[in-house]
Design a binder for these strands. Structure first.
Lengths: 256, 256
DNA sequence: AGAGTTTATTTCGATATGCGAAAAAGTGAA
DNA sequence: TTCACTTTTTCGCATATCGAAATAAACTCT
């Protein structure tokens, strides 16, 4: 069903720097012929997912229903309300729940108090797993062959001059995480971002998500973050595990 | 492009109560033949949007990329961080930014502190416009013919015994909102939910979104909500308007 | 205003998809 | 284990879509 694939690719062509796109833009970005892109856009327009202003197309809020289908089927609102908001409130910082998708982590829930953080992340945001606290916690939960595959095939790019990109070093850090139960990063994803993550297990003991608390390094050091928040995070992680036994969507979705 | 339409409908078939669906469920819910539903699911699986556990299909986090395309193209993260989190922090309650899509409001941004609220709402959630504070603020911004069309064609269902469903009363309330600059509701969408909303204008003076502060009626009365927060909301609304001049995605998307 | 360039739209034969019907596979109860 | 029922898969013809090329429309520059 090529049309479906192409239509989805059209939706994903819109980004912050490309809020409006004309037909040729869409065709170029999705690497499809103009006639096909046109058909996709016209169908999406008819269905209410995009609207047209002259020759520019722009996404409509109905697109959010697609993401919302995931959020609802994973019971994310309850997890956010019950656990993440409390964590954000207790720490005065951002709390997030992430899952692994391919080589990246995806934010599935987030609660935040005003922070000085420069990192823009919302539900659906994706970041490289190796450079994030949640990514390392998730990688630590992979089976050995899966982790090896990740280390063999991922592209490691330094995002800051502090980013660890050596596979051997990363393997060590991931192993440390497995042993200690947490992963902490500072200035690796972006300057000033400091974060502590713990794995979230499902009722069968598999790592299906990772929970983190992130802040600005001007506000708290990595060492202090670990000292003061590790227990808190573990406690919330266990609560989420209990919730996953009741509504197991995340557990089912995560394994691929 | 029927395949695209059908594929999108398949994604939207997953809900909180239907986190996993088998082929027949999907076919029934989307009212399409099993063979077509199967092809949709197989394509979505191949593209990474769903995964399969035996006969059950479940959404994967990649689906969030679709919603994220909208959030990014509308610059929602900046609006959330800059304005909504401050509002939530100042009030100790939920703050949300909504847009009108057909007969419903859609949550496009939300910031929340722990509240006693029973209303589960996240980005992408939709509620009937007539029963919500943001919906009334948005309806107040419609051209007269558009508003008349809404009142003539919408289905008004009482969600609580306090929900106003008489079109004449609603028209009056919407007119009041146009005059006073705000809309307040209590117990109309759900018991215990009290909310105050103001319109958000774009740089041309059109209403393109609505901003609200919502709480629990045990915590604050409607009258007090208006007295204490109206000015605050107007101020934030003006700030959002200034932001929309710079990144006009919401302005472009809202008009249909 | 006109020419040239770029972008959007349309056309149509080749190819892919849609879908109803039938076959195959799976499930649960006796 | 067998049987009845349900679900999934397969098949092949009818229909829809794809995409290269042609045409039309819009835009830019002098």
């Amino acid at each position: 069903m090529g049309g479906l694939a192409k239509g989805l690719a059209v939706i994903r062509a819109f980004t912050r720097d490309r809020a409006t796109l004309n037909l040729s833009d869409v065709a170029a970005l999705t690497e499809m012929p103009a006639a096909t892109a046109r058909r996709c856009l016209l169908t999406l327009e008819e269905l209410g997912y995009v609207t047209r202003r002259g020759r520019q197309f722009v996404l409509r809020p109905k697109v959010l229903e697609l993401g919302a289908a995931y959020l609802e089927s994973m019971n994310i609102e309850t997890l956010t309300k019950t656990h993440l908001e409390e964590l954000a409130g207790s720490t005065g910082d951002s709390a997030a729940l992430c899952v692994l998708d391919g080589f990246e982590i995806v934010y599935v829930a987030r609660a935040s108090i005003r922070t000085l953080m420069r990192l823009e992340a919302h539900v659906g945001s994706r970041f490289p797993a190796y450079a994030t606290s949640t990514g390392r916690a998730l990688l630590a939960g992979l089976a050995p062959e899966r982790l090896q595959h990740y280390l063999d095939t991922a592209t490691f790019e330094a995002l800051t001059d502090r980013t660890i990109i050596d596979p051997l070093r990363l393997r060590q850090l991931i192993e440390d995480c497995r042993r200690t139960g947490y992963a902490a990063v500072e200035d690796e994803l972006a300057y000033g971002v400091v974060a502590l993550a713990v794995p979230v297990f499902d009722q069968y003991g598999r790592v299906v998500a990772a929970l983190n608390s992130s802040s600005h390094s001007r506000r708290i050091s990595k060492a202090k973050l670990v000292r003061e928040r590790f227990n808190m995070l573990q406690k919330v992680s266990r609560q989420i595990t209990a919730d996953l036994a009741v509504v197991p969507g995340l557990s089912l979705s995560a394994i691929a």
